[in-house]
Design a protein around this nucleic acid. Structure first.
Lengths: 245, 245
DNA sequence: TGTCAAAACATTGTCTGACAAAGATTGCAT
DNA sequence: ATGCAATCTTTGTCAGACAATGTTTTGACA
Protein backbone atom coordinates (compact mmCIF):
# COMPACT_ATOMS: atom_id res chain seq x y z
CA UNK A 1 0.00 0.00 0.00
CA UNK A 2 1.46 3.30 -1.04
CA UNK A 3 1.36 6.41 1.07
CA UNK A 4 -1.11 8.12 -1.23
CA UNK A 5 -3.46 5.17 -1.01
CA UNK A 6 -3.27 5.19 2.75
CA UNK A 7 -4.02 8.88 2.96
CA UNK A 8 -6.86 8.49 0.54
CA UNK A 9 -8.48 5.87 2.68
CA UNK A 10 -7.95 7.95 5.76
CA UNK A 11 -9.61 10.86 4.05
CA UNK A 12 -12.71 9.09 2.92
CA UNK A 13 -16.05 9.98 4.30
CA UNK A 14 -16.91 7.59 7.07
CA UNK A 15 -20.08 5.82 6.00
CA UNK A 16 -20.60 4.16 9.38
CA UNK A 17 -20.51 7.43 11.27
CA UNK A 18 -23.16 8.83 8.98
CA UNK A 19 -26.02 8.47 11.40
CA UNK A 20 -26.85 11.99 10.39
CA UNK A 21 -27.24 12.59 6.66
CA UNK A 22 -24.25 12.23 4.47
CA UNK A 23 -24.01 15.94 4.03
CA UNK A 24 -22.76 16.44 7.57
CA UNK A 25 -20.25 13.69 7.03
CA UNK A 26 -18.99 15.38 3.88
CA UNK A 27 -18.75 18.70 5.68
CA UNK A 28 -16.82 17.09 8.52
CA UNK A 29 -14.51 15.36 6.09
CA UNK A 30 -13.73 18.59 4.26
CA UNK A 31 -13.10 20.36 7.56
CA UNK A 32 -10.72 17.60 8.57
CA UNK A 33 -8.95 17.96 5.24
CA UNK A 34 -8.69 21.71 5.69
CA UNK A 35 -7.21 21.31 9.14
CA UNK A 36 -4.80 18.60 8.01
CA UNK A 37 -3.52 20.63 5.08
CA UNK A 38 -3.33 23.82 7.07
CA UNK A 39 -5.54 25.80 4.71
CA UNK A 40 -6.05 29.27 6.17
CA UNK A 41 -8.05 32.38 5.37
CA UNK A 42 -7.48 33.49 1.81
CA UNK A 43 -6.08 30.15 0.71
CA UNK A 44 -7.61 28.06 -2.04
CA UNK A 45 -9.45 24.84 -1.44
CA UNK A 46 -8.74 21.92 -3.74
CA UNK A 47 -11.06 21.89 -6.76
CA UNK A 48 -14.38 20.16 -6.44
CA UNK A 49 -13.42 17.23 -8.65
CA UNK A 50 -10.33 16.53 -6.60
CA UNK A 51 -12.29 16.75 -3.34
CA UNK A 52 -14.88 14.39 -4.76
CA UNK A 53 -12.22 11.85 -5.70
CA UNK A 54 -10.32 12.11 -2.44
CA UNK A 55 -13.39 11.88 -0.25
CA UNK A 56 -15.04 9.21 -2.35
CA UNK A 57 -18.29 11.04 -3.01
CA UNK A 58 -19.77 12.66 -6.06
CA UNK A 59 -19.12 16.22 -7.10
CA UNK A 60 -22.76 17.11 -6.41
CA UNK A 61 -22.35 16.22 -2.78
CA UNK A 62 -19.18 18.27 -2.50
CA UNK A 63 -20.95 21.18 -4.12
CA UNK A 64 -23.90 21.01 -1.75
CA UNK A 65 -21.61 20.88 1.25
CA UNK A 66 -19.56 23.84 0.11
CA UNK A 67 -22.71 25.66 -0.94
CA UNK A 68 -23.83 25.84 2.66
CA UNK A 69 -20.47 27.37 3.57
CA UNK A 70 -20.92 29.92 0.86
CA UNK A 71 -24.21 31.11 2.28
CA UNK A 72 -22.61 31.27 5.71
CA UNK A 73 -19.87 33.48 4.35
CA UNK A 74 -17.12 30.97 5.04
CA UNK A 75 -15.96 30.58 1.45
CA UNK A 76 -16.20 32.52 -1.77
CA UNK A 77 -16.41 30.74 -5.08
CA UNK A 78 -15.48 32.06 -8.47
CA UNK A 79 -15.86 30.53 -11.86
CA UNK A 80 -12.47 29.55 -13.17
CA UNK A 81 -10.71 30.84 -10.09
CA UNK A 82 -11.62 28.29 -7.49
CA UNK A 83 -12.92 28.40 -3.96
CA UNK A 84 -11.20 30.40 -1.25
CA UNK A 85 -11.60 30.33 2.47
CA UNK A 86 -12.83 33.69 3.73
CA UNK A 87 -13.32 32.86 7.40
CA UNK A 88 -11.67 30.58 9.80
CA UNK A 89 -13.28 27.19 10.04
CA UNK A 90 -12.43 24.18 12.13
CA UNK A 91 -14.16 21.27 13.75
CA UNK A 92 -14.73 23.58 16.66
CA UNK A 93 -16.47 26.34 14.70
CA UNK A 94 -20.13 26.88 15.25
CA UNK A 95 -22.45 29.02 13.20
CA UNK A 96 -25.37 31.03 14.35
CA UNK A 97 -27.36 32.41 11.49
CA UNK A 98 -29.55 35.34 12.41
CA UNK A 99 -32.35 36.22 10.06
CA UNK A 100 -33.86 39.60 10.51
CA UNK A 101 -36.43 41.55 8.68
CA UNK A 102 -35.27 44.59 6.82
CA UNK A 103 -37.60 47.44 7.44
CA UNK A 104 -37.39 51.15 7.83
CA UNK A 105 -36.49 50.67 11.47
CA UNK A 106 -33.77 48.10 10.87
CA UNK A 107 -30.84 50.44 10.72
CA UNK A 108 -31.80 52.14 13.96
CA UNK A 109 -32.49 48.82 15.62
CA UNK A 110 -29.19 47.44 14.53
CA UNK A 111 -27.54 50.52 15.85
CA UNK A 112 -29.26 50.01 19.20
CA UNK A 113 -27.63 46.59 19.42
CA UNK A 114 -24.26 47.84 18.29
CA UNK A 115 -24.24 50.58 20.86
CA UNK A 116 -23.84 48.55 24.05
CA UNK A 117 -21.42 46.22 22.29
CA UNK A 118 -19.17 49.03 21.15
CA UNK A 119 -19.26 50.69 24.54
CA UNK A 120 -18.37 47.45 26.28
CA UNK A 121 -15.64 46.82 23.74
CA UNK A 122 -14.08 50.21 24.45
CA UNK A 123 -14.28 49.55 28.16
CA UNK A 124 -12.68 46.12 27.85
CA UNK A 125 -9.98 47.45 25.55
CA UNK A 126 -9.11 50.15 28.07
CA UNK A 127 -8.88 47.49 30.74
CA UNK A 128 -7.18 44.63 28.92
CA UNK A 129 -5.11 46.00 26.04
CA UNK A 130 -1.43 45.14 25.98
CA UNK A 131 1.19 47.85 25.59
CA UNK A 132 1.57 46.88 21.96
CA UNK A 133 -2.16 47.03 21.32
CA UNK A 134 -2.40 50.49 22.90
CA UNK A 135 0.32 51.68 20.54
CA UNK A 136 -1.53 50.24 17.57
CA UNK A 137 -4.74 51.99 18.57
CA UNK A 138 -2.98 55.34 18.83
CA UNK A 139 -1.30 54.79 15.48
CA UNK A 140 -4.57 53.91 13.77
CA UNK A 141 -6.16 56.99 15.28
CA UNK A 142 -3.37 59.16 13.86
CA UNK A 143 -3.85 57.61 10.42
CA UNK A 144 -7.60 58.13 10.57
CA UNK A 145 -7.32 61.79 11.47
CA UNK A 146 -4.69 62.36 8.78
CA UNK A 147 -6.92 60.81 6.12
CA UNK A 148 -9.91 62.76 7.38
CA UNK A 149 -8.08 66.07 7.28
CA UNK A 150 -6.88 65.30 3.78
CA UNK A 151 -10.58 65.08 2.85
CA UNK A 152 -10.18 61.57 1.49
CA UNK A 153 -12.47 58.60 2.12
CA UNK A 154 -11.88 57.93 5.80
CA UNK A 155 -14.08 54.88 6.21
CA UNK A 156 -11.42 52.23 5.62
CA UNK A 157 -9.21 53.92 8.20
CA UNK A 158 -12.19 54.13 10.52
CA UNK A 159 -12.73 50.39 10.21
CA UNK A 160 -9.08 49.66 10.93
CA UNK A 161 -9.21 51.89 14.00
CA UNK A 162 -12.26 50.20 15.44
CA UNK A 163 -10.94 46.75 14.52
CA UNK A 164 -7.85 47.54 16.58
CA UNK A 165 -10.09 48.30 19.54
CA UNK A 166 -12.02 45.08 19.07
CA UNK A 167 -8.77 43.12 18.89
CA UNK A 168 -7.63 44.68 22.14
CA UNK A 169 -10.66 43.46 24.06
CA UNK A 170 -9.14 40.01 24.26
CA UNK A 171 -12.49 38.62 23.13
CA UNK A 172 -12.77 38.04 19.38
CA UNK A 173 -16.54 37.76 19.57
CA UNK A 174 -16.98 41.50 19.86
CA UNK A 175 -15.15 42.15 16.65
CA UNK A 176 -16.93 39.31 14.88
CA UNK A 177 -20.43 40.28 15.80
CA UNK A 178 -19.99 43.98 15.19
CA UNK A 179 -18.22 43.34 11.92
CA UNK A 180 -20.88 40.94 10.71
CA UNK A 181 -23.67 43.31 11.60
CA UNK A 182 -21.90 46.01 9.67
CA UNK A 183 -21.16 43.67 6.80
CA UNK A 184 -24.76 42.52 6.46
CA UNK A 185 -25.89 46.05 5.92
CA UNK A 186 -22.97 46.92 3.72
CA UNK A 187 -24.07 44.16 1.37
CA UNK A 188 -27.35 45.90 0.87
CA UNK A 189 -26.64 49.53 0.49
CA UNK A 190 -23.16 49.93 -0.81
CA UNK A 191 -23.07 53.34 0.69
CA UNK A 192 -26.03 53.80 2.96
CA UNK A 193 -28.27 56.58 1.72
CA UNK A 194 -26.25 57.44 -1.30
CA UNK A 195 -22.93 59.09 -0.75
CA UNK A 196 -23.60 60.38 2.72
CA UNK A 197 -20.65 59.73 4.99
CA UNK A 198 -22.53 59.27 8.19
CA UNK A 199 -20.69 60.21 11.30
CA UNK A 200 -18.07 62.49 9.81
CA UNK A 201 -18.58 64.80 12.79
CA UNK A 202 -17.35 62.05 15.07
CA UNK A 203 -13.85 61.81 13.66
CA UNK A 204 -12.31 64.48 15.93
CA UNK A 205 -13.73 62.54 18.89
CA UNK A 206 -11.61 59.55 17.95
CA UNK A 207 -8.52 61.19 19.44
CA UNK A 208 -9.83 61.37 23.02
CA UNK A 209 -11.21 57.84 22.59
CA UNK A 210 -7.84 56.44 21.59
CA UNK A 211 -6.13 58.36 24.35
CA UNK A 212 -8.58 57.16 26.98
CA UNK A 213 -8.06 53.55 25.94
CA UNK A 214 -4.31 53.99 25.82
CA UNK A 215 -4.43 55.49 29.31
CA UNK A 216 -6.63 52.69 30.60
CA UNK A 217 -9.43 55.05 31.55
CA UNK A 218 -12.45 52.74 31.17
CA UNK A 219 -15.05 55.29 32.18
CA UNK A 220 -13.86 57.93 29.80
CA UNK A 221 -13.48 55.42 26.95
CA UNK A 222 -17.06 54.29 27.44
CA UNK A 223 -18.32 57.87 27.64
CA UNK A 224 -16.59 58.98 24.44
CA UNK A 225 -17.79 55.88 22.61
CA UNK A 226 -21.34 56.62 23.72
CA UNK A 227 -20.95 60.18 22.47
CA UNK A 228 -19.70 59.00 19.08
CA UNK A 229 -22.57 56.55 18.73
CA UNK A 230 -25.11 59.20 19.66
CA UNK A 231 -23.86 61.44 16.89
CA UNK A 232 -23.96 58.63 14.35
CA UNK A 233 -27.47 57.69 15.40
CA UNK A 234 -28.62 61.28 15.09
CA UNK A 235 -27.12 61.36 11.58
CA UNK A 236 -28.95 58.18 10.64
CA UNK A 237 -32.26 59.49 11.92
CA UNK A 238 -31.81 62.76 10.07
CA UNK A 239 -31.01 60.93 6.82
CA UNK A 240 -34.01 58.64 7.25
CA UNK A 241 -36.40 61.52 7.72
CA UNK A 242 -34.82 63.43 4.89
CA UNK A 243 -35.11 60.37 2.66
CA UNK A 244 -38.76 59.89 3.51
CA UNK A 245 -39.80 63.50 3.07
CA UNK B 1 -52.48 31.50 -24.07
CA UNK B 2 -53.94 29.78 -21.05
CA UNK B 3 -53.85 31.18 -17.58
CA UNK B 4 -51.39 28.56 -16.42
CA UNK B 5 -49.04 29.45 -19.24
CA UNK B 6 -49.23 33.10 -18.34
CA UNK B 7 -48.48 32.48 -14.72
CA UNK B 8 -45.64 30.21 -15.65
CA UNK B 9 -44.02 32.91 -17.70
CA UNK B 10 -44.54 35.42 -14.96
CA UNK B 11 -42.85 33.10 -12.53
CA UNK B 12 -39.79 32.37 -14.58
CA UNK B 13 -36.38 33.42 -13.43
CA UNK B 14 -35.51 36.67 -15.09
CA UNK B 15 -32.39 35.99 -17.14
CA UNK B 16 -31.82 39.65 -17.91
CA UNK B 17 -31.82 40.70 -14.28
CA UNK B 18 -29.20 38.11 -13.55
CA UNK B 19 -26.27 40.43 -13.48
CA UNK B 20 -25.40 38.65 -10.31
CA UNK B 21 -25.09 34.89 -10.59
CA UNK B 22 -28.13 32.90 -11.45
CA UNK B 23 -28.29 31.52 -7.96
CA UNK B 24 -29.42 34.85 -6.53
CA UNK B 25 -32.02 35.06 -9.26
CA UNK B 26 -33.33 31.63 -8.36
CA UNK B 27 -33.44 32.57 -4.69
CA UNK B 28 -35.30 35.75 -5.50
CA UNK B 29 -37.75 33.87 -7.70
CA UNK B 30 -38.50 31.34 -4.99
CA UNK B 31 -38.98 34.11 -2.45
CA UNK B 32 -41.38 35.83 -4.81
CA UNK B 33 -43.27 32.57 -5.22
CA UNK B 34 -43.44 32.09 -1.46
CA UNK B 35 -44.80 35.57 -0.97
CA UNK B 36 -47.29 35.19 -3.80
CA UNK B 37 -48.63 31.89 -2.50
CA UNK B 38 -48.68 33.05 1.09
CA UNK B 39 -46.50 30.21 2.37
CA UNK B 40 -45.87 30.74 6.07
CA UNK B 41 -43.81 29.16 8.81
CA UNK B 42 -44.47 25.43 9.04
CA UNK B 43 -46.00 25.24 5.57
CA UNK B 44 -44.62 23.03 2.85
CA UNK B 45 -42.83 24.37 -0.17
CA UNK B 46 -43.68 22.91 -3.55
CA UNK B 47 -41.48 19.91 -4.41
CA UNK B 48 -38.18 20.56 -6.10
CA UNK B 49 -39.28 19.15 -9.44
CA UNK B 50 -42.32 21.41 -9.53
CA UNK B 51 -40.25 24.45 -8.59
CA UNK B 52 -37.75 23.58 -11.29
CA UNK B 53 -40.50 23.36 -13.91
CA UNK B 54 -42.30 26.49 -12.80
CA UNK B 55 -39.15 28.60 -12.59
CA UNK B 56 -37.63 27.15 -15.74
CA UNK B 57 -34.36 26.02 -14.22
CA UNK B 58 -32.95 22.62 -13.43
CA UNK B 59 -33.57 20.76 -10.24
CA UNK B 60 -29.89 21.09 -9.29
CA UNK B 61 -30.18 24.85 -9.27
CA UNK B 62 -33.28 24.69 -7.12
CA UNK B 63 -31.51 22.37 -4.74
CA UNK B 64 -28.49 24.63 -4.41
CA UNK B 65 -30.67 27.64 -3.72
CA UNK B 66 -32.69 25.85 -1.08
CA UNK B 67 -29.53 24.31 0.31
CA UNK B 68 -28.29 27.73 1.30
CA UNK B 69 -31.56 28.34 3.13
CA UNK B 70 -31.16 25.07 4.92
CA UNK B 71 -27.79 26.05 6.29
CA UNK B 72 -29.27 29.37 7.38
CA UNK B 73 -32.00 27.57 9.25
CA UNK B 74 -34.78 28.95 7.07
CA UNK B 75 -36.08 25.60 5.86
CA UNK B 76 -35.88 22.00 6.94
CA UNK B 77 -35.83 19.22 4.40
CA UNK B 78 -36.83 15.62 4.90
CA UNK B 79 -36.52 12.72 2.58
CA UNK B 80 -39.96 11.72 1.46
CA UNK B 81 -41.66 14.40 3.47
CA UNK B 82 -40.77 17.56 1.62
CA UNK B 83 -39.37 20.95 2.53
CA UNK B 84 -40.95 23.13 5.17
CA UNK B 85 -40.41 26.75 6.00
CA UNK B 86 -39.06 27.12 9.53
CA UNK B 87 -38.42 30.85 9.62
CA UNK B 88 -40.02 33.84 8.09
CA UNK B 89 -38.51 34.85 4.81
CA UNK B 90 -39.35 37.66 2.49
CA UNK B 91 -37.62 39.89 0.01
CA UNK B 92 -36.84 42.12 2.96
CA UNK B 93 -35.14 39.50 5.09
CA UNK B 94 -31.43 39.67 5.63
CA UNK B 95 -29.23 37.04 7.14
CA UNK B 96 -26.37 37.52 9.51
CA UNK B 97 -24.30 34.38 9.72
CA UNK B 98 -21.92 34.45 12.66
CA UNK B 99 -19.19 31.87 12.86
CA UNK B 100 -17.45 31.49 16.13
CA UNK B 101 -14.81 29.20 17.40
CA UNK B 102 -15.72 26.84 20.15
CA UNK B 103 -12.96 26.60 22.69
CA UNK B 104 -12.52 26.42 26.42
CA UNK B 105 -12.98 30.16 26.61
CA UNK B 106 -16.11 30.27 24.49
CA UNK B 107 -18.67 30.17 27.20
CA UNK B 108 -17.03 33.01 29.10
CA UNK B 109 -16.55 34.99 25.91
CA UNK B 110 -20.13 34.50 24.91
CA UNK B 111 -21.17 35.61 28.32
CA UNK B 112 -19.07 38.74 27.93
CA UNK B 113 -21.06 39.61 24.83
CA UNK B 114 -24.37 38.74 26.38
CA UNK B 115 -23.68 40.92 29.37
CA UNK B 116 -23.90 44.38 27.75
CA UNK B 117 -26.80 43.23 25.59
CA UNK B 118 -28.83 42.01 28.57
CA UNK B 119 -28.07 45.15 30.56
CA UNK B 120 -29.11 47.37 27.68
CA UNK B 121 -32.22 45.27 27.16
CA UNK B 122 -33.22 45.74 30.80
CA UNK B 123 -32.61 49.46 30.51
CA UNK B 124 -34.66 49.76 27.34
CA UNK B 125 -37.44 47.65 28.78
CA UNK B 126 -37.64 49.89 31.84
CA UNK B 127 -37.83 52.89 29.53
CA UNK B 128 -40.12 51.63 26.77
CA UNK B 129 -42.36 48.88 28.09
CA UNK B 130 -46.10 49.34 27.74
CA UNK B 131 -48.37 48.92 30.74
CA UNK B 132 -49.37 45.53 29.46
CA UNK B 133 -45.75 44.45 29.02
CA UNK B 134 -44.88 45.53 32.56
CA UNK B 135 -47.71 43.38 33.86
CA UNK B 136 -46.46 40.42 31.86
CA UNK B 137 -42.94 40.83 33.23
CA UNK B 138 -44.23 40.87 36.80
CA UNK B 139 -46.39 37.83 36.15
CA UNK B 140 -43.51 35.89 34.63
CA UNK B 141 -41.38 36.80 37.61
CA UNK B 142 -44.02 35.47 39.98
CA UNK B 143 -44.18 32.20 38.03
CA UNK B 144 -40.43 31.86 38.03
CA UNK B 145 -40.12 32.32 41.76
CA UNK B 146 -42.98 29.92 42.38
CA UNK B 147 -41.34 27.22 40.28
CA UNK B 148 -37.99 27.88 41.90
CA UNK B 149 -39.39 27.59 45.41
CA UNK B 150 -41.14 24.38 44.44
CA UNK B 151 -37.64 23.06 43.62
CA UNK B 152 -38.65 22.20 40.07
CA UNK B 153 -36.69 22.92 36.88
CA UNK B 154 -36.87 26.69 36.72
CA UNK B 155 -35.03 27.21 33.44
CA UNK B 156 -38.06 27.27 31.12
CA UNK B 157 -39.68 29.85 33.38
CA UNK B 158 -36.41 31.78 33.41
CA UNK B 159 -36.40 31.86 29.62
CA UNK B 160 -39.98 33.08 29.51
CA UNK B 161 -39.18 35.81 31.99
CA UNK B 162 -36.19 37.09 30.06
CA UNK B 163 -38.06 36.76 26.76
CA UNK B 164 -40.71 39.05 28.20
CA UNK B 165 -38.02 41.62 28.96
CA UNK B 166 -36.60 41.33 25.45
CA UNK B 167 -40.05 41.77 23.96
CA UNK B 168 -40.57 44.89 26.02
CA UNK B 169 -37.48 46.61 24.61
CA UNK B 170 -39.38 47.42 21.45
CA UNK B 171 -36.43 46.09 19.49
CA UNK B 172 -36.74 42.46 18.43
CA UNK B 173 -33.04 42.23 17.66
CA UNK B 174 -32.08 41.97 21.31
CA UNK B 175 -34.22 38.94 21.85
CA UNK B 176 -33.12 37.38 18.56
CA UNK B 177 -29.43 37.74 19.11
CA UNK B 178 -29.42 36.72 22.75
CA UNK B 179 -31.70 33.80 22.06
CA UNK B 180 -29.61 32.58 19.14
CA UNK B 181 -26.41 32.82 21.10
CA UNK B 182 -28.01 30.83 23.85
CA UNK B 183 -29.47 28.39 21.38
CA UNK B 184 -26.17 27.78 19.61
CA UNK B 185 -24.59 26.70 22.84
CA UNK B 186 -27.61 24.74 23.91
CA UNK B 187 -27.22 22.69 20.75
CA UNK B 188 -23.80 21.62 21.85
CA UNK B 189 -23.95 20.92 25.50
CA UNK B 190 -27.48 19.95 26.29
CA UNK B 191 -26.96 20.98 29.85
CA UNK B 192 -23.67 22.75 30.22
CA UNK B 193 -21.41 20.92 32.64
CA UNK B 194 -23.75 18.10 33.36
CA UNK B 195 -26.76 18.84 35.44
CA UNK B 196 -25.48 21.95 37.11
CA UNK B 197 -28.14 24.63 37.17
CA UNK B 198 -25.92 27.63 36.84
CA UNK B 199 -27.20 30.80 38.38
CA UNK B 200 -29.69 29.34 40.82
CA UNK B 201 -28.51 31.91 43.32
CA UNK B 202 -29.76 34.67 41.01
CA UNK B 203 -33.42 33.71 41.11
CA UNK B 204 -34.31 35.80 44.19
CA UNK B 205 -32.75 38.79 42.40
CA UNK B 206 -35.34 38.49 39.65
CA UNK B 207 -37.97 40.09 41.84
CA UNK B 208 -36.20 43.46 42.24
CA UNK B 209 -35.33 43.31 38.52
CA UNK B 210 -38.96 42.89 37.51
CA UNK B 211 -40.04 45.56 39.91
CA UNK B 212 -37.43 48.02 38.68
CA UNK B 213 -38.51 47.50 35.09
CA UNK B 214 -42.18 47.76 36.03
CA UNK B 215 -41.42 50.99 37.87
CA UNK B 216 -39.43 52.37 34.93
CA UNK B 217 -36.24 52.68 36.96
CA UNK B 218 -33.61 52.25 34.26
CA UNK B 219 -30.61 52.64 36.51
CA UNK B 220 -31.76 50.10 39.02
CA UNK B 221 -32.83 47.65 36.29
CA UNK B 222 -29.38 47.85 34.74
CA UNK B 223 -27.67 47.45 38.10
CA UNK B 224 -29.66 44.38 39.09
CA UNK B 225 -29.10 42.82 35.68
CA UNK B 226 -25.37 43.38 36.04
CA UNK B 227 -25.49 41.77 39.47
CA UNK B 228 -27.32 38.72 38.11
CA UNK B 229 -24.85 38.33 35.27
CA UNK B 230 -21.90 38.64 37.61
CA UNK B 231 -23.21 35.78 39.71
CA UNK B 232 -23.80 33.61 36.65
CA UNK B 233 -20.33 34.34 35.36
CA UNK B 234 -18.79 33.45 38.71
CA UNK B 235 -20.73 30.18 38.64
CA UNK B 236 -19.47 29.42 35.14
CA UNK B 237 -15.87 30.12 36.09
CA UNK B 238 -16.16 27.97 39.19
CA UNK B 239 -17.58 25.09 37.15
CA UNK B 240 -14.87 25.43 34.53
CA UNK B 241 -12.09 25.30 37.09
CA UNK B 242 -13.79 22.46 38.89
CA UNK B 243 -14.12 20.60 35.60
CA UNK B 244 -10.47 21.09 34.77
CA UNK B 245 -9.11 20.15 38.18
C1' DT C 1 -67.54 -1.51 9.44
C1' DG C 2 -63.07 -0.70 11.63
C1' DT C 3 -58.16 -1.78 11.87
C1' DC C 4 -53.88 -2.87 10.48
C1' DA C 5 -50.36 -4.27 7.22
C1' DA C 6 -48.65 -4.08 2.68
C1' DA C 7 -48.26 -1.88 -1.60
C1' DA C 8 -48.01 2.22 -4.31
C1' DC C 9 -46.69 6.89 -4.46
C1' DA C 10 -44.23 11.22 -3.55
C1' DT C 11 -40.20 13.67 -2.30
C1' DT C 12 -35.58 14.48 -1.05
C1' DG C 13 -30.60 12.52 -1.42
C1' DT C 14 -26.89 10.95 -4.29
C1' DC C 15 -24.59 9.70 -8.46
C1' DT C 16 -22.96 10.11 -13.38
C1' DG C 17 -21.86 12.55 -17.34
C1' DA C 18 -21.98 16.44 -20.13
C1' DC C 19 -21.46 21.18 -21.58
C1' DA C 20 -21.21 26.41 -20.61
C1' DA C 21 -18.88 30.47 -18.62
C1' DA C 22 -15.25 32.80 -17.03
C1' DG C 23 -10.80 33.34 -14.73
C1' DA C 24 -5.73 31.70 -15.00
C1' DT C 25 -1.88 30.14 -17.54
C1' DT C 26 0.98 29.34 -21.43
C1' DG C 27 3.16 30.24 -25.58
C1' DC C 28 3.98 32.87 -29.59
C1' DA C 29 4.75 36.89 -32.34
C1' DT C 30 6.40 41.34 -32.15
C1' DA D 1 10.13 41.98 -22.20
C1' DT D 2 5.14 42.84 -23.76
C1' DG D 3 0.77 42.10 -25.44
C1' DC D 4 -2.44 39.00 -27.29
C1' DA D 5 -4.49 34.75 -28.50
C1' DA D 6 -5.04 29.90 -27.53
C1' DT D 7 -5.49 26.57 -24.03
C1' DC D 8 -6.32 24.87 -19.58
C1' DT D 9 -8.61 24.91 -15.13
C1' DT D 10 -12.44 25.48 -12.22
C1' DT D 11 -16.99 26.61 -10.97
C1' DG D 12 -22.06 26.91 -12.77
C1' DT D 13 -25.92 24.64 -14.89
C1' DC D 14 -28.31 21.05 -17.00
C1' DA D 15 -30.41 16.28 -17.76
C1' DG D 16 -31.49 11.80 -16.34
C1' DA D 17 -31.29 7.98 -13.34
C1' DC D 18 -31.73 5.41 -9.10
C1' DA D 19 -31.74 5.11 -3.80
C1' DA D 20 -33.80 6.12 0.67
C1' DT D 21 -37.50 7.29 3.24
C1' DG D 22 -41.81 9.49 4.54
C1' DT D 23 -46.95 9.55 3.15
C1' DT D 24 -51.09 7.88 1.24
C1' DT D 25 -53.93 4.42 -0.59
C1' DT D 26 -55.51 -0.16 -0.94
C1' DG D 27 -57.09 -4.37 0.51
C1' DA D 28 -57.51 -8.26 3.56
C1' DC D 29 -59.42 -9.79 7.67
C1' DA D 30 -61.82 -9.72 11.96
Amino acid sequence: MTISEASRIQEQVDPAGARRNRDSAVVDAIIALIEREGIGIGDRLPPEIELAERLGVSRSSIREAIKSWQSLGIVTRNKGAGTRLSAEISSRSIHLPLTLKLEAESLIRTHAVRRPLEIEASRLAARNASTQERKVILARMAELIAVFEAAEDWRPADHRFHAAIHDATGNPLFGQIIWQIHHAFHDIYDTPFGKAHLGAATIPLHRPLAEAIAAGDETRAAAVTAEILDIVEADVRREMEGGDA
